[in-house]
Simulated scan of single mutants.
Amino acid sequence: MIRHILLIKFKESSSTTEIDKLKGLFESMPEKVEGVESVEWGINDSPEGKNQGYTHSVLMTFSNEAGRQNYLPHVEHEALKQVFRPLLEDIIVFDYTF
């Protein structure tokens, strides 16, 4: 299995409505894309203050490398990026196999 972690910093102009729409798109990926096992969406609530402006996270689990390779060029991923990119200030992407 592969974990795909996104740490997200949204533009200040991004509205709650837009971010909620994006959350729904991410959470629908397991039903739409073969190989996406699960998606978790989170908002930073660490008291340490070390998030460097990154406020949200997405944790996706792919069943295997074929699942990741299916997701990356998938039409549903492309549609998600069309909503995501205008809201995005910065992002960190980190994958690992377990």
Rank of each mutant, 00 (worst) to 15 (best):
N44I: 08
S14V: 07
E18L: 03
F10M: 05
G42C: 04
K9Y: 02
L6A: 06
S57D: 01
S46D: 11
E78F: 10
T17H: 03
G35V: 10
S57Y: 09
D20N: 03
Y71F: 15
E76K: 15
H77P: 01
L25M: 15
S28D: 09
V58K: 12
P73C: 02
M1H: 11
E76N: 14
L6E: 01
P86G: 04
K81G: 11
V33R: 12
F26I: 05
G24N: 13
E34N: 12
S15H: 10
G67H: 12
K32G: 12
V93M: 14
K11A: 04
S57R: 11
W41N: 06
N64V: 12
F94N: 13
D90K: 09
E37P: 09
F84G: 00
K23P: 11
N51I: 08
A79D: 01
L22H: 02
V39C: 06
E18T: 04
M29E: 03
W41R: 00
T55A: 04
A66K: 12
M29Y: 02
L25G: 00
K23Y: 04
F26D: 01
S28W: 06
A79I: 05
L80C: 02
P86A: 04
G53M: 10
E27L: 15
T17I: 13
E65L: 15
H56M: 05
V33E: 09
I8N: 00
S38C: 03
V83R: 09
E48S: 08
E27H: 01
E89H: 07
K9C: 04
E89S: 13
M29T: 06
L88E: 02
D45Y: 02
E78I: 00
I5R: 02
S13T: 13
E12L: 10
H74Y: 12
I8A: 09
Y54T: 04
S14T: 11
H56K: 01
K81Y: 10
E34T: 13
S13N: 08
P30Q: 07
T17Y: 02
E48D: 04
P47M: 04
S46T: 11
L6Q: 06
Q82L: 13
H4F: 07
K23I: 05
K21N: 00
V93Y: 08
G67W: 08
E76Y: 13
T55L: 14
L6Y: 00
N70P: 05
D20A: 15
E76I: 05
V36S: 11
V75G: 12
D45P: 00
I43P: 04
E76C: 14
S63V: 14
H4R: 11
R85T: 04
L72I: 12
H4S: 01
V33G: 06
K81C: 06
E65V: 13
L22N: 03
D45H: 13
E27G: 07
L87Y: 00
R3W: 03
I91F: 06
I8H: 00
